[in-house]
């Protein structure tokens, strides 16, 4: 029987949670024995090659592209796990949620004190995904099965969760591993 597949993605995140995946260090070999990596920045596979058992999602939804990727993950993965505070509550990108989108863009590209933009252009290439009105936590967009908070969740948290999930053992994370920072 072939090994189950795992996919990962970073939406509106800083890739810190992916760094934390890599921080599993040599234990990644144990994980690799249990699963095969599918679509993920870790192996640079761009498209789902088939159904995945687990999807790990970092970052919240700030743009239509984030929503689209999240939707693809929900469609292709049996179990969807949120990784980190951005996916869970929007995180730093969600600090814009208190400000209307137009004002955000104007502050970022026109009015901010450090802006140098002589053409006074707000980027609007058709290739650029459209921003959402605010940053949405992933669990407000699609159904999510598990949440690992943290900024980032520690490598131990990720490793223990994955192993428990893949070996069908109960997960009992110790107190130290549930953290929001």
């Amino acid at each position: 029987m072939s090994k189950p597949k795992i996919a990962t993605a970073s939406l509106a995140g800083c890739f810190g949670c992916h760094m934390s995946i890599l921080d599993i260090d040599e234990r990644i070999l144990q994980v690799a024995e249990l699963v095969q990596f599918d679509k993920s920045p870790v192996d640079d596979i761009k498209k789902f090659t088939g159904r995945c058992l687990v999807g790990l999602v970092e970052g919240g939804c700030a743009t239509e592209e984030n929503v689209h990727v999240l939707e693809e993950f929900r469609k292709h993965c049996d179990i969807l796990i949120l990784l980190g505070d951005c996916a869970t509550m929007g995180g730093i990108p969600a600090m814009r949620n208190m400000v209307p989108l137009k004002e955000c863009l104007e502050e970022a590209y026109l009015n901010g004190p450090t802006v140098y933009n002589p053409g006074r252009v707000i980027p609007n290439d058709p290739e650029l995904p459209l921003n959402l009105d605010r940053v949405y936590p992933c669990h407000e967009v699609v159904k999510i099965d598990y949440v690992l908070p943290g900024c980032p969740p520690s490598a131990d948290t990720i490793f223990q969760t994955l192993v428990a999930l893949l070996t069908g053992k109960p997960l009992d994370l110790p107190y130290e591993l549930i953290k929001y920072d």
Binding site: D85, I92, M95, M98, C151, Y180, D181
Partner: peptide, 8 residues
């Protein structure tokens, strides 16, 4: 509220 623990 707005509780951004990661930067608090």
């Amino acid at each position: 509220g707005n509780h951004f623990c990661m930067s608090c």
